[in-house]
């Protein structure tokens, strides 16, 4: 065979093998296999028969800060808002509410709640009256709120300017509705699921406006007052695991305490006083 023929034969073999190799499997046109997995009808949460818990008690206490909190930042000094000047910060300057420390170094707006209702505890019915979530001077009132899931929250506005309320719940349906000026009837909003962590509620039009809500399927959750004190009534008389949450707590999840164990005496009251460091708030 001459070299020419050999050269041509070599090229032909190479092209043929190239063709074979390019044809080989995988890629977009491959047909995937499908295996079926049945949906579990129920989740076995374990445990046998549940004993009823009778009797209720009260829990009270104070959450304090050790150290001096920094002066809150002023978001909008009085009368200096760039937009909606006659409404936002017109009467009172708008101050950062993310860490409010009151008398006796008590921390306000700390959420204290039970995650899941203890099995066997009778859960009182949800209140029929709606909770009111207002805004004035481009500030949400209140800054922190605990509601029952399925309880109506009425969003109102005392401001003569349009707002919107944008919620970011973890499990419930979210909401992003415009609230027109001087909305006194209230726009209804329902968090339809039990939430395990408080979540932010914002106004997109006024970027500093933020509040935190928590929706529970039981009534055992509250927030601390301005002086850091709180009180929970009607708690099931058993050992409870409490969660203590604050919006500025450092680390993931915002929990100051995830498993605060307290035993509630029947027809009695228990006290919990906790102190947290500045470092717990990332300061």
């Amino acid at each position: 065979m001459t070299s020419v023929v050999r050269a041509i034969a070599a090229t032909a073999i190479a092209t043929a093998s190239l063709g074979l190799l390019t044809g080989c499997g995988g890629g977009a046109s491959a047909t995937p296999t499908v295996t079926y997995k049945a949906g579990d009808k129920s989740v076995d949460t374990g445990g046998g028969p549940v004993t009823q818990i009778d009797g209720t008690g009260t829990l009270s206490g104070t959450i304090r800060l050790v150290g001096t909190a920094p002066t809150p930042e002023v978001f909008v000094a009085k009368g200096t808002a760039k937009r909606d000047t006659n409404v936002c910060g017109a009467e009172v300057a708008i101050i950062d509410q993310s860490l409010q420390v009151g008398e006796g170094n008590g921390i306000a707006n700390v959420f204290i709640y039970i995650d899941k209702a203890p099995p066997g505890a009778p859960i009182p019915a949800a209140p029929t009256a709606p909770a009111v979530f207002d805004q004035k001077g481009c500030v949400f009132l209140p800054h922190a709120m605990v509601v029952r899931s399925s309880q109506t929250v009425l969003i109102k506005s005392q401001d003569n300017a349009g707002h919107n309320t944008h919620t970011y719940p973890g499990r419930s349906r979210s909401f992003n509705g415009a609230i027109k000026a001087l909305e006194r009837d209230g726009v209804p909003l329902i968090y339809n699921k039990h939430e395990r962590t408080p979540f932010p509620v914002k106004c997109d039009m006024h970027s500093w406006m933020q509040a935190f809500h928590l929706a529970l399927d039981h009534p055992w959750g509250t927030i601390t007052r301005a002086d850091g004190s709180f009180e929970l009534k009607g708690l099931p008389a058993t050992e409870l695991t409490l969660r203590v949450w604050h919006e500025k707590a450092g680390g993931r999840g915002g929990f100051l305490e995830r498993k605060l164990k307290v035993t509630i005496p029947k027809d009695g009251s228990a006290t919990v006083d906790k102190e947290f460091q500045l470092s717990d708030f990332g300061l």
């Binding site: 909606d84 349009g162 707002h163 000026a181 039009m205 933020q210």
Partner: peptide, 30 residues
Amino acid sequence: TKINCAKCHGEGGRGNGGFLKDIQKNPETQ
């Protein structure tokens, strides 16, 4: 100002309203 469309969409509807000048907060990380 009762509804405040123009604050985002702009007086001329060009999408250049005043609210674009504000710094927003990330709702997940605050």
